[in-house]
């Protein structure tokens, strides 16, 4: 655990040593504001809640999380520093977990910095704070799932751009799989079981309840499990490809 902490600390400060974290946070704050006010009509709805804000998170994460995760492993392999990392007395899972936690903390920080929005609805009315806290937690969990996928894609290639595109595509599949578009496309020929299975992988469906402030065990479990599985996949990929 000590090593996980050391790695996470290094990675976290590296996000802030380069403009990556600042740009990410600035863009995230700007876009989430734009989406909730102009497209989500936060004011016009006349309700003191943050539902329009949270509803756009899957779409924001779709592009922003792969961007923050794309360098995690590909840069490490391209520069050769992976050789250094793997010959230090640190096991791969410690490195994987450390890197994940560091980037997840940056995402968490970006979420925390949206607090003015919370203050705004507080000023305008009396929102249910429990719901908002739950939605924040849910959003952070979903961000973790996006992050784990993106990191796994970053482990696949030395090229950051390729890592980014792969991550966006895979994340997109998971976001979309429950949408009416996919379900409609499957409807004519696939059985109900297949449709249900595909739909159950959807980030959107699992996040829907969370955005409304319901932290159901199956939704939380789904995102936690996604994180674990994708991180485990990256561990195997790194083990296989570290020296390529």
């Amino acid at each position: 655990m000590r090593n996980v902490w050391i790695i996470a600390k290094r990675e976290f400060s590296s996000f802030f040593a380069t403009p990556v974290a600042y740009v990410f946070i600035a863009i995230f704050l700007m876009l989430s504001g734009v989406f909730s006010f102009f497209i989500g009509n936060l004011y016009d709805r006349g309700q003191a809640d943050l539902l329009p804000f949270f509803n756009f998170h899957p779409w924001l994460y779709l592009f922003l999380v792969p961007a923050i995760a794309m360098r995690t492993w590909s840069e490490e392999r391209r520069s050769g520093s992976i050789e250094l990392l793997m010959t230090l007395p640190i096991s791969i899972w410690e490195a994987v977990l450390g890197k994940f936690l560091a980037a997840w903390a940056v995402l968490g920080l970006a979420l925390v910095l949206t607090f003015p929005l919370w203050l705004t609805v507080n000023y305008l009315g009396n929102p249910d704070h429990g719901i908002i806290v739950a939605a924040y937690v849910g959003s952070w969990l979903m961000a973790g799932a996006f992050l784990a996928i993106s990191m796994c894609m970053s482990a696949l290639t030395k090229n950051q751009v390729v890592a980014f595109i792969l991550a966006v595509v895979v994340c997109f599949l998971f976001v979309l799989s429950g949408s009416s578009m996919v379900v409609d496309a499957l409807q004519p020929w696939a059985g109900n079981l297949l449709i249900d299975t595909v739909a159950s992988f959807s980030f959107l469906t699992h996040f829907e309840a969370m955005a409304k402030g319901v932290l159901a065990l199956n939704d939380v479990g789904y995102f936690v499990l996604s994180v674990v599985i994708w991180l485990y996949a990256s561990l195997i990929i790194i083990e296989q490809k570290k020296a390529d």
């Binding site: 290094r10 050789e83 010959t87």
Partner: peptide, 29 residues
């Protein structure tokens, strides 16, 4: 690995860190 010191070919390092920050990180590990 704890008793080995290793300089890989081309001396790769974390470029965005300062020299002191980097050595401190290694010392910590």
């Amino acid at each position: 690995q704890k008793s080995i010191g290793y300089l890989p070919e081309g001396a790769p390092a974390y470029g965005d860190m300062t020299v002191f920050g980097y050595l401190n990180f290694i010392a910590e590990v």
